[in-house]
Structures are given as C-alpha cells and as structure tokens.
C-alpha cells in the first residue's frame, strides 16, 4: 500500500526509502533548495530546504518521508528563515550579479528573488579570493562558491576523479582543487565531466561562451525558480 504525507495540506505519496524532497519532486511540488540535486547523494549543508516535519525542523533533502506526517513548507516563517540563510550566503562570498555571466541562470539569485530578498541586511565579509583561469575550458571564481559540494560529489561519484575537495574549517572553509599546483588547469577536469556543469551558481563557468543568451531572456528571467526548477536540468539552453 502506498504511503502518504501532507505537504502544506496536499497529499504526497511516497515509496519506502524516499526523502521528503524525493517525494515532493516526484509529485511536482517545489521545496526551495541549493545543495540538492537528485542526481547525487543528498548532502544537507545549505539548509535552505528546511521544512517542519510534524512541527520539528528537518532538511527535506535528507529526512526520510514518514507515513501520515504533516509537512509545512511554504509558510511565512520558513520563507523568512530561508531568506536569512540566503543573506548569509550572499555576505559570505562576493556576489556581484550584474558582473556575472550566470546572472539569470543562477539558483542563488533566483532563490533570493523567490524568497523576497531585496537588499543585503548583514555586514559583508568581502573575503579576498583569487580567480583561477588556468583551465582551457573553464574559469573558477571562488568568490561565488557557496560550498554546496555538488562539484565535489559529481567529480567523486559520477566522474570518479575527485578533482574537488573542501579545505579549511568554519568560515575558512573553501573549495580546493586536486592537482600538483592546486590550479584547475593542472587537474584532471575534462570538458565533458559532470562536475564541470553542475555548479548551481556562477563559480564554475565555461570559457568562450560568454553572454550567448542575453540578460533578460535567461532561464529565471522567464520563469520563477519554483516553476523552472534547477539550472542543471536545463544544461543545453541555459548559457
């Protein structure tokens, strides 16, 4: 017999072993998220998908669905918390949307719109982070990395290469590259690797294709993220 939980009052069926996120996605319901991508093992680090499961907060991407449970998702309270989480990500790095080729195709930016963020509310950290343009096909701009570890997971689990890793602890945590020089150009990252096209923000960008689609006609310019879904589902038409 199929099991169900309710998501903001809607009945959502699920199978054993599915998370709240799996079941919601399968039912076409949107739970905001950044570090989750159904192709890869769930991670639970961005916390943007935090929902209330029978009144207790859990990350929808890692919490198993429970039969008969009541899940709250699209409430003012949770939207407010999500907006604050996004604020934290914006001030942690350097995100200058007008100067970023990912603008309009960026999940961080699209989610910020969706959650009603209009201006930064906390003190910017303005970290000094270098840009790495050593790879023939990609630029990696660490200023925009939100530590979702999708590239880490993709390179390890899909490409079998482990090109990416996290170094540092706490606020010093940052993305690192496995290569003799620490540079991307020296690594095993190949154009066709899944890790190369999985970044939900503008941290890993392909070279030679800048501004192929004009601003104003990009994915999230046309539809809100709740309708358009993840940018990596639109790999062909997104850049």
């Amino acid at each position: 017999m199929l099991k169900h939980f309710t998501l903001d009052g809607k009945r959502i069926p699920f199978a054993e072993g599915q998370t709240i996120m799996d079941a919601a996605m399968a039912a076409g319901e949107y739970i905001p998220h950044l570090c989750h991508n159904p192709e890869f093992a769930p991670h639970g680090s961005c916390r943007v998908c935090t929902v209330k499961l029978n009144g207790r907060r859990v990350a929808a991407c890692t919490a198993p669905a429970l039969d008969g449970a009541e899940v709250e998702n699209d409430t003012d309270e949770l939207r407010d918390e999500r907006r604050t989480l996004l604020q934290l990500l914006f001030i942690e790095g350097n995100h200058i949307c007008p100067a970023c080729d990912k603008s309009g195709n960026c999940q961080l930016q699209a989610l910020a719109y969706y959650c009603g963020m209009t201006a930064p509310e906390f003190t910017h950290r303005y970290p000094l982070r270098p840009l790495d343009a050593s790879h023939p096909d990609f630029v990696i701009d660490f200023n925009r990395c939100i530590l979702c570890e999708l590239c880490v997971r993709a390179s390890r689990d899909a490409d079998g290469k482990s090109v990416f890793a996290i170094h540092g602890r706490g606020i010093q945590a940052h993305l690192a590259i496995d290569s003799p020089s620490g540079k991307l150009g020296d690594s095993k990252l190949h154009k066709e690797d899944r890790a190369a096209s999985v970044c939900p923000v503008g941290a890993i960008l392909p070279k030679h294709t800048g501004y192929a689609v004009p601003i104003g006609e990009r994915l999230y310019d046309r539809k809100p993220i709740s309708v358009a879904g993840d940018v990596s589902d639109h790999r062909k038409d997104s850049s």
Partner: peptide, 21 residues
Amino acid sequence: FAHESCGFCTPCRVGTTLIQQ
C-alpha cells in the same frame, strides 16, 4: 564557536562569525 564550527552548514558557518563580529 567561530573557531570550532566545522563549516559544513550555512547557518553555523556564517552565523558564528556574525555573532562574534
């Protein structure tokens, strides 16, 4: 806490530093 946060999740990684500041 800012020193010992592991840095995995957004609220603690950034929040501990903001509280400290």
